[in-house]
Structure formats: structure tokens, C-alpha cells
Design a protein around this nucleic acid. Structure first.
Lengths: 147, 147
DNA sequence: TTTAAATAGATGCATATGCATGAAAAATCA
DNA sequence: TGATTTTTCATGCATATGCATCTATTTAAA
């Protein structure tokens, strides 16, 4: 059963294609990062959020809100980042339950050194096939889907 | 540093949004399936490919080409499907190295029973925010990214 | 204030994934 | 043909993930 090209796609088909395109690009980008000896993209994402944040520090609960990761996952990923020396974990002064994660210079350095590989990967695996209008349309449409 | 709304988005930003939107919808859909007692989406994907295939059967290597999964992952996922009684694994008659995976009636039944939940989830988490033109544009643009 | 409920984060345990590698058959080549 | 390389699939082992639960602290309620 094949879609007729004049009809608009079934929502499920559009979604399936979104999943495939997204997954394919993600896999390729991750693969390039790993090939160059870099850690997974999730590390980059967290370090980037920290760099953007006020004082280059965030609480795990705030990282969780910005990133698409479950609480326990954030908790363990942070531990790995601490062990690797990219961030620092301190008790929160104003909330005894919580901690504060601080971006260390080593973490900023990692962001910088990953960036060229990351950028080139996205250009090659994703942006190379798209023009300005495509990127603009994707940006606009996908914005409607986000929370 | 915030994008000016008149300029076109940086490719990386468009890609980041693609990842987020895709991941968010995927997580929500998986969550709904699980809440209704269904297996993960990957099971559905494989069973669906089998149903579409000639004779409702495929070799693992062909499943791998249609799905975004590594070889060892396909191999083990198939084992789970066999254990659960949804598919059948036989030695390939024409290729001594290979096996043939057959969709069983139980597997077709699972597809049918998952479909309403699956469809509703995608409608609610993804399509609800989009109109016909959006879906059409997504379909067209993302098609350029795929292999 | 004392008690109850909610929030922040960590973790034990089961399951799933990634990686490297293995075995076995088929395809290619000399 | 015999030797080499490729292809197909499986698996041992390390790591990562998901789930449920735990502790500690804060917030809200009685």
C-alpha cells in the first residue's frame, strides 16, 4: 500500500519519517564523535547547558528540565562527568536536599574541542541536503511540537 | 546569545530542535504504549516490516536494513519476539548462514491490538499541533535527509 | 508546632545495549 | 579446485538504562 503523491501524508507516516531522519542523523553524528575519540553527545549537551547557565552552574533538577533525560539518568551522567573531571558537584547552600553542578575549565575545553567535529558532522549528515528554506520550515514547524 | 527571528536558523539549531521534538514525541508515545501494557515500539516496527514483506517473512539482515538497529540488536530483539511467540525463526533454505523470520498470527494480532493506542499517541503528542501543510512539508524536507 | 506531603537526588537490581569477536556458510579470487 | 575474503548471525563481557525505592530536606497542612 503506497501513498499517492498528491495526497497529504498520514500523520503516522510523517512521524515515522521524523523518527527515521532524526535517528539516522543522530547515529551518524555519534559515530563521528566516537571515531574522533570524543564522549557521547549527552555529555556535550549537559556541558553546553552549564555553559549557557548563570554562573556556569545548574542543579540536576534544572538540567533535567533542559535535557531529555530521566532523573536517574542525569544523576549518573553527572557522576561520570565528575569522575572525568569536567564538572564539579557541591552541596547547594540554599537547599539542603540538592547539589549544584559547576562547569570546570576542563569542561569548557572539551566543549571547544568537540565543536568542530560536531559541527562538521551535523553539516554533513543533516544540513548538506537542505537549503535555507528547509531549515527555516523545520525550525518553525518543529517548534509547534515542543512543550 | 539569542537568534534574531528574521535570520534563518543555524543548521545546528534546526538539528537540535529536530532531536528534541523527535525525542519528546518518542518518549511520550513509548510511555503511553507501556502504560497500556504493550511492548516497546521496536517490537511494533519489526512486526510491521514483517507484515509488509513478501510472505510475511524477512531475514534478519533485511530487517536491519529497514529498521534503525544494529545487527546484534536485531538478533537479540528477534530472540525476544520468538520467546514471546510473535514470530518464528527457521533456517534459510537457500542460504545456510541465514535464518528466516516469519510473522505468526499472534504477531499480527499484537499489531492490531497496539494500533489504536499507537495511533492515538502519535495524534496527541505530534499531529495535534500541526496542520496538513506542516505534515506535508515535514514529509518532503525530511525525505531529503534520509538515505 | 507537629504531622503529612512533596521534592531532590542516589542506588540496588533487572534488563538492554555496545563492542569485539566467534563460527559457519557463501562468494570471490588465484 | 583450493585459499582468501565477505557475509550472516550469535554471544561473552562491560557498560548503560529503566524501575522501584530509599534518605534527606523542604513545603504545606492541621
Amino acid at each position: 500500500m503506497v501513498r499517492k503523491s498528491e495526497t497529504s501524508p498520514d500523520p503516522i507516516d510523517a512521524w515515522a519519517r521524523l523518527q527515521r531522519a532524526s535517528g539516522k542523523v543522530l547515529a551518524c553524528v555519534e559515530s563521528r564523535l566516537k571515531a574522533d575519540g570524543f564522549p557521547p553527545l549527552a555529555w556535550y549537551d549537559i556541558l553546553l547547558e552549564l555553559r549557557r547557565a548563570d554562573g556556569k552552574a545548574l542543579r540536576p533538577v534544572d538540567i533535567e528540565k533542559r535535557i531529555l533525560l530521566a532523573q536517574y539518568n542525569v544523576s549518573r551522567l553527572i557522576d561520570r562527568l565528575v569522575t572525568a573531571g569536567y564538572v564539579d558537584k557541591r552541596r547547594s547552600p540554599e537547599d539542603g536536599r540538592g547539589v549544584v553542578i559547576c562547569l570546570l575549565p576542563e569542561g569548557e575545553q572539551l566543549l571547544k574541542s568537540m565543536w568542530p567535529c560536531y559541527r562538521e558532522a551535523v553539516e554533513a549528515e543533516f544540513a548538506a541536503d537542505l537549503d535555507k528554506e528547509d531549515l527555516e520550515a523545520l525550525w518553525r514547524i518543529l517548534g509547534k511540537v515542543l512543550p
